[in-house]
Write a protein that binds this DNA or RNA. Structure first.
Length: 415
RNA sequence: GCGGCUGUCGCCUAGUGGUUAAGGCACCAGAUUGUGAUUCUGGGUACCGUGGGUUCAAAUCCCAUCAGCCGCCCCA
């Protein structure tokens, strides 16, 4: 049998309902904050990603789904969405007259990675980008949106880590100091760190090897190499977070996976997710838009892993708001025709009413309703028809009520 | 990309060379015709992930392959 491609899965049932719940809340909160949706193609020119994300990042080097199309163009399945959003902004001149832009997106991303739980080759992200404003306050606005969203899902205990990685020139002077610090004790570092110090020095900071962490004692901190402007930006950002009641911790060792970040970076990890604990991350990217050929424009945003978010909701037993699910059971074939006429106006009211059309014994229909998770059964037989009523059975308690036909809609709303 | 582990009904598992692959949950059918979820009775629904090999004999041993899991790298 042909199976789904490795790392790509089907979504249905409980898990899909959680996805849909998150998506509904996403549209609601984003809308409330004035963010507008943008949808970009899943496939882009390979160079969009190699230009935006940094040539030494793992995503570029080993994780992209890259292929040639029939015209020999190098195409790539998007591994993240920010580069595409920026491309769309430039290409469609979205900044003209719309500055600043508040955009959000939701959709599948692709990374060719070794499988592990919580890590998929097709995975879903929700992201929000705030484009055109450089202030720390706009960063906090974007994070308030994020935490309002998480709160609406019942997630209130997640901790935010923040850091600043400065601008490339600030980073360069830090690298110089850090590399000489490293060189003085290079024998104490693991082979991976010897590779990192060349490719991406910041990565040495979050090495998990204990001896490396010991060797890092007293290391130069990037915050000390920031310009006074960047430093006061960072201070103001923290002050504003306090003011908005968002709790956080500063982590000078926190490193993000993409090279385009400037100044503020942040992430949220969840201890409940095992090794793949990164739930979301983001930061400022003031140079990306110009690097991709657009006008120099500051920007800030985050991306959240929907698959991991849903697995967290399920692990934490966060229950979905449940609407009544009704099975309408006509007794006998003549009643089925009557039921069809009766249910049509009800179907326009937005309630979930499934019609039993099999014409099987009531006993069997109730068993089916129970098994499939219906909350109520509407029973419609000769007796009900004669009295112009419907029998409503509450499947949780077993209680029954008789509703006059004219009151069905109003009483449904009160369930 | 590196290292390790796993794969038996829809789900969880027993079975470690020898009859017809066992059990639980679930599912299906029934216990007199309009009442489920609780009870009772009956039913096994699986080419043991796939393909080769060893053997008189393979779910069991070997190889390959696919998928999943765990750690690393890294990331959502």
């Amino acid at each position: 049998m042909t199976q789904s491609v490795k790392g790509m899965r089907d979504l249905w049932g409980t898990e899909l309902r959680h996805f849909q719940f998150v998506e509904r809340m996403c549209y609601q909160i984003m809308g409330a904050h004035g963010y507008q949706e943008i949808r970009t193609p899943i496939v882009e020119s390979t160079d969009l990603f190699s230009r935006s994300m940094g040539s030494t990042t793992d995503i570029i080097n080993k994780e992209m789904y890259t292929f040639k199309d029939r015209s020999d163009r190098s195409l790539t399945l998007r591994p993240e969405n920010t580069a595409s959003v920026v491309r769309a902004i430039i290409q469609n001149k979205l900044l003209e007259g719309n500055d600043p832009l508040h955009l959000f997106y939701i959709g599948p991303m692709f990374r060719y990675e070794r499988m592990q739980s919580g890590r998929y080759r097709q995975f879903w992200q929700i992201g929000a980008e705030s484009i055109g404003v450089a202030s720390p306050e706009s960063e906090v606005e974007n994070l308030v949106l994020l935490f309002d969203f998480l709160g609406s899902l019942g997630l209130t205990d997640l901790s935010l880590s923040i850091n600043s990685v400065g601008f490339p020139d600030e980073r360069a002077s830090f690298y110089t100091a850090f590399k000489s610090f490293f060189k003085d004790r290079e024998a104490s570092f693991c082979p991976d760190c010897h590779r990192r110090i060349v490719d991406n020095p910041l990565r040495v900071l979050d090495c998990k090897v204990a001896s490396c962490q010991t060797a890092l004692t007293g290391h130069p901190e990037i915050l000390n190499f920031l310009s006074s402007e960047s430093r006061s930006h960072h201070e103001k950002f923290q002050k504003c977070l306090h003011g908005s009641n968002i709790s956080f911790s500063t982590n000078p060792k926190m490193v993000r996976g993409l090279d385009y970040y400037t100044r503020t970076t942040f992430e949220v990890i969840s201890p409940d997710l095992g090794a793949q604990c990164a739930l979301l991350g983001g930061g400022r990217y003031d140079r990306l838009i110009q690097d991709l050929g657009g006008p120099a424009t500051p920007a800030f945003g985050w991306a959240l892993g929907l698959d991991r978010l849903v697995s967290l909701l399920i692990k934490k037993n966060i229950s979905l708001p449940s609407k009544p699910r009704i099975l309408l059971i006509p007794l006998g074939e003549s009643m089925l025709e009557y039921a069809l006429q009766l249910v049509r106006p009800l179907w326009t009211t937005g309630h979930s009413i499934e019609l039993e059309t099999r014409g099987v014994a009531l006993k069997k229909s109730l068993a089916t309703a129970n098994r499939k998770g219906h909350s109520h059964a509407f029973i419609l037989g000769e007796g009900e028809k004669a009295k112009n009523i419907i029998t409503v059975k509450f499947l949780m308690t077993g209680e029954q009520e008789e509703w006059p036909l004219g009151e069905i809609t109003s009483r449904l709303t009160k369930l």
